[in-house]
Nucleic acid binder design. Structure first.
Lengths: 367, 367
DNA sequence: TCCGAAGCGTTCATATTCGAACAACGAGGT
DNA sequence: ACCTCGTTGTTCGAATATGAACGCTTCGGA
């Protein structure tokens, strides 16, 4: 069996990923987690530090800090001393990739990016945004606040009246917003992503398809919408929708998946689209245990391609272009800061991609 | 079956495929799997890396990563020998401003722009597009074809299969398009523009508003849609819609306007939104002749701010950001040409602006 | 202030991978 | 038939990635 050790670059990506998630990393932990010597990790960290992507500290590394005694020798024409604030609801799910793209873009155009983690809670969103504003350091804001439920309208109008330009990321508003200027946003077209998944399965003969949505996610609404649209257009039954988290850690997930399996059998459903890779992997695993072969007995498509390629079989997945999202957001903000109000508001949809792997169609070509 | 070794191109497809599936590939595995020498695989990887489709690492390759120490070619400031073709349906109405923006952007980034005028006719569109393709001079196309009526679906799939990347301008498609890649577009959010006009009038007390749409324009559909949406949201009657051209040159325009006036009086309509400046001016003029004061007896908002400021009184108007549109289209195409397929498809809405002048509200400040 | 331990980085060793140079091969064109 | 051009394979010295050893540095408590 071939050594299944990740490449150096992947290791470094992992370092940056851990950093974004936890703000700091320890050499020891990483060495253990990746199964390499500490020295190797140190070398990785040194390389990343040399490019100003992190700050080396005794025992590990942290996010780049201005207090870093070794200043990054980036010879960028820092002609735009802008600082952009960014508030995202989570630092360990979905958003790290977005931040990655944002950071890269920021470095490329020479602006600072100031990050705040929030939660999926409106009060917390406002607190974090308020902190950034009050500090007076940021000239623009990229926000992904919670815009569901009660306070949505008020939140929108609050955001629209902030003293600095604002762009929503992965959020959208009613078409018209009661703000001095119409709010701008950039978001993934999740509805289209789901539609792509449905059409892919339809093309391969599936006529009864199920949808498993995670419970709390703001994307669920878009996914459901795309689902309904696709089913209507293709003349498929659209009643099979489950709204449950079924990832491995969830209490009772086995019982829930068993329920899904039963329902699939009863309705002769031959394909499932599941939101979030961990959930899909959990489903795939349970199905495997119960003798349901993927993709032969049941085709699976995951939504949100983070770790789908690590599953066995590798999962076909819809991949929102998260890095691009972050990049476009930063670019838009920079344009706005440079051109000011002259620039008409703009709303951008980034289309996801469908990555074909092994969980939806039997491979024609074998290794 | 003969041991048929795949062609180089297929091999590279395979590399990319494997990459998408598993996130990384190693030279050894591929060489073994494809029955070629490692060097060959390395050469493939090098070629793909040069196009930015993957990141080379010791031992194999990974998906393009921002940590790539050898980043793709930064755009050469002087020598981007791209030529972008652009086909627009008219050279004397609406489109000149768009072309202006496109031309400016093209000059700014150093690409050629090759222009073709078409008509609002599908056959002519295809002929013009075909000519550009056949000449073999253009690397990308910005198109504004007629996508209404019968042949729309076929037109869309024809465009989606052209051998060069394509971006629709001021057009849109069904969310999902039956094309290898989802079509991209950039367009004005006319529906929102009209909604802004309605809300503006509503804010100033108007409760019975009329809409005059021009007959042949592809924007009419969007305007009608925004109209219905706004009226529904504001709880206004939405039945007053006229679809007639009423500009000064139109035969019978006085009779039509007289009809509109009568209808306004009967339904106690106090505000009109009229598509196209010349039509609005014509209405304003006729109303003036008939003793209907603008804005006191009748508020007017024009759609499409070309000459609205020249009217007397100056017309409040919704202004689609046409120059911006052209510029964004060119920028998008340049990104696509430089970054290739790596770039996920993108769809952009440019929001119009409402320009307040004298035809909709009595000026508070009187001289 | 000092001390021990954990962490760090230099140097060397080793396995692996890379790519330049040249040879071999095969498909088209003349 | 011949040539040419582009692709592929082989060989081999160079480059790279990693790890072990060992002395130096830094940290955090006494």
């Amino acid at each position: 069996m071939t050594e299944k050790r990740p490449f150096a670059l992947q290791r470094r990506e992992r370092v940056m990923d851990e950093l974004r998630r936890h703000g700091s990393v320890r050499v020891q932990d990483l060495a253990r987690a990746l199964g390499v010597s500490e020295l190797t990790i140190r070398r990785d960290i040194a390389a990343l530090a040399a490019r100003g992507l992190l700050t080396k500290v005794h025992g590990g590394a942290t996010l780049p800090s201005d207090l870093d005694p070794a200043p990054p020798r980036r010879h960028r024409p820092a002609s735009t001393p802008f600082t952009i604030g960014m508030v995202v609801p989570s630092l360990d799910f979905y958003w790290p990739s977005v931040l990655n793209g944002a950071r890269t873009a920021a470095v490329a155009v020479g602006v600072q990016l100031q990050l705040r983690g929030s939660s999926y809670d409106q009060a917390e969103d406002r607190r974090q945004i308020g902190r950034l504003i009050d500090a007076g350091q940021v000239q623009g804001l990229l926000l992904a606040p919670n815009l569901e439920g009660e306070g949505a309208d008020e939140m929108i109008s609050w955001i629209g009246n902030l003293p600095v330009p604002t762009i929503l990321v992965e959020r959208h508003t009613p078409q018209w917003t009661p703000t001095p200027r119409q709010l701008e946003w950039v978001r993934s077209d999740h509805a289209l992503g789901l539609e792509m998944a449905v059409r892919h399965l339809h093309e391969h003969g599936h006529r009864r398809i199920g949808l498993v949505l995670s419970k709390g996610s703001p994307t669920s609404a878009h996914l459901a919408q795309g689902w309904l649209k696709a089913c209507a257009e293709l003349d498929l039954p659209s009643e099979f929708v489950v709204r449950e988290d079924v990832a491995l850690g969830t209490p009772g997930h086995r019982r829930i998946i068993e329920g899904i399996l039963t329902r699939c059998r009863r309705s002769r459903t031959t394909a499932l689209i599941v939101h979030s890779d961990p959930d899909t992997m959990s489903v795939a695993q349970y199905f495997g245990e119960r003798g349901v072969a993927v993709p032969d007995d049941m085709a699976l498509v995951s939504y949100d391609d983070e770790v789908a390629h690590l599953a066995e079989p590798a999962l076909t997945a819809v991949r929102p272009a998260k890095a691009r999202l972050g990049r476009v957001a930063v670019d838009m903000m920079v344009s706005r800061l440079m051109e000011g109000k002259r620039l008409p508001p703009q709303r951008v949809l980034i289309l996801p991609e469908l990555i074909l792997r092994d969980s939806s169609v039997k491979r024609a070509t074998s290794l």
